[in-house]
Design a protein around this nucleic acid. Structure first.
Length: 908
RNA sequence: GGGCGCAUAGCUCAGCGGGAGAGCACUACAUUGACAUUGUAGGGGUCGCAGGUUCAAUCCCUGCUGCGCCCA
């Protein structure tokens, strides 16, 4: 006998272990099953499970289990990425906290990397055990890590080949420099934040005391009416410390105010250099003074201007963003932090009398997504991928429809980015990562080869003599290796059985925020190196936010941790909650309350199974749903078939919410609320043959429900699968290995569904009327079907037992006349009367009936309006017109019956 | 500035050219019954605003208002 509820806490781990031990998560490599594959979006090795992961992996697991049951050979490839900056940060922090006076620098590269590996072995990959708690059916025997030997080999091979193809190159450019980690980062790792800042207006005096006339007042046509004589040009900046590196002042060529001084020079204060005034399209004449200082080495826009005009680039800062020890920087600023230098420079300009104004202004600041510090554009040597070239086939794959996005509109985001893609900076000044396979000789020649030996050979050949080489110190962006994930995890560059069978993968499930970071890069790399796009369907799911719709973040302190939710409500409840909320588009608002609701749903199912078990409903291997005889059994079989079809259709189109919703309402509102209630009289009745059929049918339905629900709620369904068969024939195999239900279409029986709908409507109608007329729930009353056809009368007799029971009736019968003193409602062609001898509240009943009549009249008017419109009758499809006619007849019938009842009340 | 989206019941969200839906919340009633992690019933919405297309618009188009996200 089942306990009153499922103990998720005590059972889930065991169930999971049983699946794993049985090898249920492994793909079938022997048979002819069609392959179905997904690669997990690799979580960071430093990461722990958050609700985004929970959602992402729930959806993947639903697909994996569904397709496995549908007979596919499913590979869900798991693994982790090495998260260069994040991991290095974790280990460095650990060293600092250990207090052993050790640091990355003191250990040196080799020792430090050893420490990272040690950390990884001890506490990395917490998330893997958490994914297991969620029920994720990944093939863990194939777990991969981006720093694994095989995957590292793939990285090297890709780098070397792209370099030989000219698609990877080294260049000195302005990059986003993170002064905290002292490394370059890519555009995508920079977050632009709006912050309150200042706009400082400086005077740059003209050389030799020259002057010009600057307009200060204008007439209505915009012509200057008043001038002042100026011996300076006014520039404004949000970053005064960069003025020491100015190479020019730029004005727009059409800006008449400055036309007379273009080509002249101004004194750069503090730096004591003279710089030219140049004309360039970049300055906006309507913004500020219209004159812009150009600091080529510390601003992306200025960089372009400086390049166009061949301006010198003054590199002002060191790797920590302190003012550099350079001769063009006055000694007093050298070594100052950039923000200290800012204060000092503003003060000094002010002292020189050159500070015009300080304006409050909202400025957009680039922030490193990992470090949180202000990013400094810096001129450095880095490695770049020619993403533009690689993007062409990646775009084409989606445009042609070979690769699809779900929801479809995400492809616009994908196009938008790929069509405007910039070279991708892939080198990082870190230690933890794939070291770049490039060697330099003393003349600055670069040799990019798979191994040091090959590089040496190439260098010796080129130089015609043994050459001393030095390897590049830098490592590659983590996303560079993640970009290879769909094929590197399957064994590429080796030609493996897995690569052959499972690449391209079928489906990728991920979130919109890494379409650029990851999806686009996998597309580029996958197509370039294998000739095929790495997946067919890309499913983009929503973001999980808090109850108030706010993005969860550590700083806001509104993070809901999924692990305690699993502890409290079970993994199934969390999964179901996420799945049913995973509609297209919107953010998913999460709260424990909701999860609780779906835990209750599991309990409901559990108790339905418990009820069946108590009633000796044992499934029979010989049972054939096509052969059931009783209408109730035919009905539930029909409903199961319909539900299964809906779920399958919804899962095929990735509508997890619809599929889950269908299951919820079928299990609760059809199976529990109606079928189990309706069969109670049969199970307690005398007809042994019918009882046997009904027991078998109920047991069969439970089994089918368990299969259909399994992808969503794997634990409770697996547990029930075993338990409900305890007193029967037992089970030969676990639920996870069962075939997905496939029924003959003929099981869906409209006539039977109509018949039971008649019964359900009758019972509901009586219940409603009882409640509305305040008939005590315990009072047994009579119901009389008045004016029903013979068919209806027959149905009433056939289902009398259940109708009486569920509507709490003394008895029910049929008659030709409504007894006086009854309350009534319309049921199809008939009227149902509840005689309330003596206790009828005539006035209340008049009000109620009048409302019903009014409701019918309102509908009738609406429909008559339509049907009276010639254009409607002429232009609307015939079936729509017919449908409206039918509706009209229905409401007229209903209205007549209620009016009739109303007039009868007057007779009392 | 460019792109994507959202506005439907108190809340969270489905729906979508021809009858306004679900879950939660709320109200009333019930309860030794498979299940109080329950049951039955109920109230509650000019489907953001204004135009247009159409025989017909919550749904399609345009504009407006408000809100969100991404990119520059």
């Amino acid at each position: 006998m089942l306990e009153p509820n499922f103990s998720s806490k005590s059972q889930e781990a065991e169930i999971y272990k049983n699946w794993e031990d049985a090898g249920a998560f492994k793909p079938d490599m022997e048979g002819n099953k069609a392959p179905y594959s997904m690669v997990i979006p690799p979580p960071n090795v430093t990461g722990s499970l958050h609700l985004g992961h929970a959602l992402n992996n729930t959806l993947q697991d639903i697909l994996a289990r569904f397709e496995r049951m549908r007979g596919k050979s499913v590979l869900w490839q798991p693994g982790l990425d090495h998260a260069g900056i994040a991991t290095q940060m974790v280990v460095e922090r650990q060293l600092a906290q250990a207090g052993g006076n050790e640091s990355r620098a003191s250990l040196g590269r080799e020792k430090f990397i050893e420490r990272v590996w040690q950390w990884k072995a001890e506490s990395g990959g917490t998330i893997v055990s958490q994914l297991k708690r969620l029920g994720a059916s990944c093939d863990w025997s194939r777990e991969r890590f981006t720093m694994d030997e095989g995957l590292s080999e793939a990285v090297l091979k890709v780098f070397v080949q792209l370099h030989k193809e000219g698609l990877i190159y080294r260049a000195k450019r302005l990059v986003n420099w993170d002064p905290h980690f002292e490394t370059a980062i890519s555009d995508l790792e920079v977050i632009n934040e709006e912050k309150a800042g200042h706009f400082w207006h400086f005077k740059y005096p003209l050389e030799n005391g020259e002057t010009y006339e600057f307009p200060i007042a204008y007439d209505e046509e915009g012509n200057p009416t008043e001038y002042e004589t100026r011996n300076y040009i006014s520039i404004a900046t949000t970053r005064p410390e960069t003025m020491l590196g100015d190479g020019a002042v730029a004005v727009h060529p059409s800006d008449k105010r400055y036309a007379s001084i273009v080509g002249k020079k101004v004194l750069l204060p503090l730096a004591d250099r003279y710089i030219p005034i140049i004309a360039d399209e970049y300055p906006d004449p309507d913004f500020g003074s219209g004159a812009v200082k150009i600091t080529g080495a510390h601003d992306f826009n200025d960089y372009k201007v400086a390049q166009r005009h061949n301006l010198p680039m003054y590199e002002l800062m060191d790797t920590k963003a302190r003012m550099a020890d350079a001769d063009f920087i006055p000694a007093k600023y050298r070594g100052l932090d950039r923000f200290e230098a800012r204060k000092q420079i503003v003060a000094d300009i002010d002292e020189l009398g050159l500070l015009l104004e300080v304006e409050d202004k909202t400025i957009s600041q680039p922030i490193g997504d990992r470090s949180g510090v202000v990013i400094e554009p810096m001129l450095t040597d880095q490695w770049y991928v020619d993403a533009k070239t690689l993007s062409v086939p990646a775009l084409e794959a989606v445009k042609s429809g070979n690769v699809t996005f779900t929801p479809d509109n995400w492809k616009e985001t994908y196009f938008q980015w790929l069509e405007n893609i910039e070279p991708w900076c892939i080198s990082r000044q870190l230690w933890w990562g794939h070291r770049i396979p490039a060697w330099y000789d003393e003349n600055g020649n670069i040799f990019v080869e798979l191994t040091e030996e090959e590089a040496q050979k190439a260098a010796d050949e080129k130089n015609g003599a043994p050459t001393k080489l030095k390897r590049d110190e830098d490592v590659l962006d983590t996303w560079f290796s993640s970009g290879l994930w769909p094929f590197s995890t399957l064994g590429w560059p080796e030609k493996t059985e897995y690569l052959d069978k499972f690449y391209p993968t079928t489906t990728l499930v991920t979130m919109f925020d890494i379409i650029f970071f990851w999806v686009a890069r996998m597309m580029m790399m996958g197509i370039h190196f294998t000739g095929k796009a790495p997946f067919k369907n890309i499913i983009i799911h929503s973001r999980v936010v808090d109850e108030k719709g706010k993005k969860m973040s550590k700083s806001k302190g509104n993070i809901i941790d999924p692990v305690p939710l699993i502890d409290e409500y079970g993994a199934d409840a969390l999964r179901f909650c996420l799945a049913i909320a995973a509609g297209p588009g919107r953010d998913i608002r999460m709260s424990a309350k909701r999860v609780e609701g779906y835990r209750n749903f599991g309990t409901k199912l559990w108790n339905a199974a418990r009820f069946c078990q108590m009633n000796e409903c044992v499934s029979d291997a010989e049972f054939n749903p096509e052969n059931v005889t009783h209408t109730l059994n035919k009905w539930i079989v029909s409903q199961v078939a319909r539900t299964a079809k809906d779920i399958e259709r919804n899962l095929e189109s990735f509508r997890f919410d619809e599929a889950a919703g269908t299951l919820y309402s079928f299990i609760w509102n059809i199976f529990c609320d109606w079928y189990l209630e309706l069969i109670k009289p049969l199970l307690n009745g005398e007809d042994e043959e019918l009882k046997a059929e009904t027991r078998k049918t109920a047991a069969w339905v439970i089994d089918e429900i368990l299969k259909l629900l399994h992808p969503f709620m794997p634990f409770i369904t697996e547990e029930l699968w075993g338990k409900v068969a305890e007193f029967g024939h037992g089970r030969e195999d676990m639920l996870i290995n069962q075939a997905w239900p496939k029924y003959p279409l003929a099981l869906i029986n409209d006539d039977v569904e109509k018949e039971i709908a008649w019964v359900i409507d009758l019972i509901s109608g009586i219940r409603s009327l009882r409640a509305e007329t305040n008939i005590n729930a315990g009072t047994k009353i009579t119901a009389i079907l008045v004016g029903g056809t013979q068919d209806s009368v027959n149905l009433l007799e056939k289902y009398q037992d259940v109708i009486d029971r569920l509507a709490r009736l003394e008895y029910s019968t049929s008659a030709n006349e409504t007894p006086k003193g009854s309350v009534t409602f319309v049921h199809n062609e008939a009227v149902v009367a509840l005689p309330l001898a003596g206790v009828l509240d005539v006035e209340a009943e008049k009000v109620r009936l009048s409302k019903e009549v009014a409701r019918c009249i309102a509908e009738i008017k609406k429909i008559e309006g339509k049907l009276g419109n010639e254009n409607f009758v002429a232009r609307a499809p015939q079936e729509v017109v017919d449908e409206q006619k039918e509706r009209l007849a229905g409401y007229q019938n209903e209205k007549d019956k209620y009016s009739n009842a109303l007039s009868k009340l007057d007779e009392i």
